Simulated scan of single mutants.
Amino acid sequence: MSHAVPQTKAARQALIRTLIDVSAVESQTQLAVLLEERGIHATQATLSRDLDEIGAVKVRNADGRLTYATQAILESMEDTGARLNRLCAELLHSAAGSANLTVLRTPAGAAQFLAMAIDTHDDPDVLGTVAGDDTILVIAADPLGGERLAQKFLDRASGL
């Protein structure tokens, strides 16, 4: 089955974004099948890298199932405050503060996604973030605001 999709990384990633945005893609295996149906073969390692590069993350959909979502679809679904609250509830494992620093812990691979949501929210209490794989360093605007900011993220996670 031949489609007019060129076999380039950019074209493959664009198709992956589209498939994620229009389908409830629950696994890399399911994504591979959807791509194969469109004439594109990709290994699990390639799909994993592509999903990471396009910023796809697993989120719980309305049916309670974990599906992939992209930043674009998440942003279109909710405002930045609501999105940050939801992501804190889903991704935040712990928060601790000291001086003007807050350290947030997430599942492996989720830190950069949560940090992007924090940076996008434009909170005057936050100067910025630095994200690794499962840890985010949040710099508070207040020289002694680290602990208060940690509590603020914990409150967001618990729906307060």
Rank of each mutant, 00 (worst) to 15 (best):
P6A: 13
S27V: 03
T120G: 04
L127Q: 14
I139Y: 02
Q44E: 14
S23Y: 12
L15S: 08
A45Y: 02
S23W: 06
N100S: 10
A131C: 02
L160N: 13
S23H: 15
D133G: 09
Y68L: 05
G64W: 06
R105N: 09
L34R: 12
E90F: 02
H93S: 02
P107V: 01
A62M: 07
D52R: 15
G39P: 08
G64S: 07
G55K: 08
L149P: 04
A89T: 10
E78I: 01
I16E: 10
A24L: 08
A117F: 04
A24I: 01
K58M: 10
Q30M: 13
V22H: 12
V103H: 01
D52Y: 11
A82S: 15
E37A: 10
F153V: 00
D155W: 13
G128T: 01
D133F: 00
A110N: 13
D79F: 05
Q28L: 12
D79M: 08
L34F: 09
R86C: 01
G81A: 10
L127R: 14
A11F: 06
R83K: 09
S76Y: 06
H121N: 14
S23T: 09
T80N: 14
A99K: 14
G145D: 08
A99V: 03
Q71P: 06
L47V: 09
A131W: 00
L19C: 05
L144G: 12
A4G: 13
L31W: 08
A99T: 02
M77W: 10
L66S: 12
D133T: 08
Q7K: 13
L19H: 11
I139S: 09
I136K: 02
D119Y: 06
A32Y: 04
L114A: 08
F113W: 11
P143N: 07
T106E: 06
L35M: 11
R65T: 07
A141F: 04
H3Q: 08
D122R: 15
A89L: 10
E36T: 07
G97I: 03
K9H: 11
L160C: 06
E53G: 00
G109F: 07
A72S: 15
T129G: 02
S48H: 14
S2M: 11
V25L: 12
D21R: 15
Q13P: 03
A56R: 06
M1S: 14
L74P: 05
A131I: 01
D155L: 08
P107K: 10
N61E: 02
G128M: 05
S76L: 12
G81M: 10
I136C: 03
A14Q: 15
L31N: 03
K9D: 10
A32Q: 15
L35A: 03
S94Q: 04
T106W: 11
A108G: 01
L66W: 14
D133V: 02
G159N: 06
